[in-house]
């Protein structure tokens, strides 16, 4: 089998939610001496991006996207131990979480997967995260971006608090803020002074790159 064929097969395995096959073919690709980063970028990530596209087009929904990400992670688990440290290139550091008062984290998890697939380093604070924790963590890890998620209208105000705290800490110029989730809209994002609004998981990745001025060519 040619390199290009096995990489396409891996991408297809991810899109088709085939966890075991993705792991098996990722192993096979390593045995064919294909570099781990090539397997990731031209196989696993291509598949996950395609899954994201299908999600945006309402062909795939959350169950499908979760299973695609399971497949991608199964491949990553096989391949990642073979990456040499100097080969990795991180597009940016992202602190992500669901704001305080809300525990719906499926959307946040999907954004995390797609951002990771695009080459970002993710620090996931989980759910029901106080505004202060986002700011402290961003400061501690020197984050480029904070991604805030909520599914509830009753907790949207927490997003504004994060932005205000960043201002208080004089970090606002250094750290971009992206908001998203069911009730969030472009105008809400504008109103609270966020840098971007992710309409859905795939959209969030595009906006993350835009607000951090990362050209598409640099991203996987």
């Amino acid at each position: 089998m040619k390199d290009i064929d096995i990489l396409k097969t891996i991408a297809d395995n991810v899109v088709e939610m085939e966890e075991e096959l993705t792991a098996k073919n990722s192993k096979k690709a390593l045995e064919m001496n294909i570099s781990p980063l090539t397997i990731i970028n031209q196989g696993l990530v291509i598949g996950m991006n395609e899954a994201g596209r299908l999600f945006e087009e309402n062909e795939y929904f959350v169950p499908e996207l979760l299973l695609c990400s399971d497949a991608m992670y199964a491949g990553l688990k096989v391949v990642t131990p073979h990456i040499k440290k100097e080969e990795t290139h991180v597009l940016g550091k992202v602190v992500i979480g669901v704001v305080e008062g809300d525990t719906h984290d499926i959307g946040k998890n999907l954004v995390k997967v797609l951002l990771q697939a695009s080459g970002f380093e993710i620090i996931d604070l989980g759910r029901n995260v106080p505004a202060r924790d986002f700011v402290d963590k961003a400061k501690q890890v020197d984050a480029d971006l904070i991604c805030l998620s909520t599914l509830m209208t009753t907790t949207m105000g927490e997003m504004k608090k994060v932005i205000e705290l960043l201002k208080e800490e004089r970090l606002r110029d250094r750290v971009r803020v992206l908001v998203g989730g069911g009730p969030i809209s472009e105008s809400f994002a504008r109103n609270i002074g966020a840098d971007g609004y992710g309409e859905n998981a795939a959209g969030a990745v595009r906006v993350a790159k835009r607000v951090l001025n990362i050209p598409d060519a640099l991203a996987s």
């Binding site: 305080e100 008062g101 809300d102 525990t103 759910r127 029901n128 509830m152 009753t154 907790t155 927490e158």
Partner: peptide, 10 residues
């Protein structure tokens, strides 16, 4: 269930 200070229990 956990009752956060803000928001609904989960």
């Amino acid at each position: 269930l956990k009752f956060p200070e803000k928001g609904a229990p989960f």
